[in-house]
Amino acid sequence: MRPSQDWNALIQKHLDGQTTEEEAQALSTGIEDDAEVRSQYLKAAQIHGALADETLALDVESEPEVKAAAPEQQKVLGQFAWPRQIAAGLVAGIFVGLLGVGMIWAIDSPKVEAQVFDIAHGDFETMAEGPTPTQFPVRFGEWAGNPAEVVKEADGNKILRFVRTANVKGTPDGIASNCSVFQLVDLTALRQQLEAGQTQGNYSLKLSARFRRDASLSDNELSNPKATLRIFLFQGEPESIGETWPQVVRQAEALGKKSIELKPGSAAATISASCILESDATVALIAVAATSGYNSKTPVPLGGFFVDDVQLTVIKQPNLPVEVVSR
């Protein structure tokens, strides 16, 4: 019989696909015959499984990579977001050919309707110049979060500048990998409006924003910074979301996110993140962010990142006939 430490090492090797046939056989025998080995294996495998869960990445405010060259494309099979894509494909009947095996096809393409849904201060023009509140927002319609400020450009246009990364909850030793500025959006009126409509369809929300990165001494040494958009839909009261952030993302009814890499001085880029508009969602949490590109517990200055024209659009996709085809 192997000592406990040996079993643990063997289990860990197996989780990374490093065991030989003989070692896998020895582990199998241990699992079959020894309750302690079985228990050790299950615990280690459950940690491994939980780490592979995409929502944990959001919990810790890490940002999975999306290449700048294709900001409008979703990741395809093999990346961790695929089950949501399958689900979204089934509902909306779009893009499912991207899943790589020709699983489901939309067989018609009726007209898609889009309607802008006003969010407060999406263009920052009516806001006073200066810092936005550095706390998680507790009410609808205010921008707040990590250190950021509204600045006026030479042409008079107002824009939000990301000042530095921070941990929005002020958690001691918490990760400060990004500068996120949030807004809570009340979906009640939108739901009433949609429910009053006579036509049937599937609805999704598209969050878009225009990001720009100027050359700046404060962030020109960052190796892999990104601009990021996130949208989460919740059922509940707005103040309850901040209380349990970031763990609350696990309760999100729907979510969408998109990142883009920007070189200093490059042209501004508009990116969008979409999610299915769940029928029982009452609150949307939207977040615009600049990330340092690595996990640091120390705040990092981000002087050159800006965002403007944050917009929420309701997309109506008429009911589409979809069919499953054989592989």
Partner: peptide, 11 residues
């Protein structure tokens, strides 16, 4: 290298 069928059934 995979676990045996019996081990997986036990798990």
């Amino acid at each position: 290298a995979q676990l045996s069928e019996k081990a997986m059934a036990v798990l």
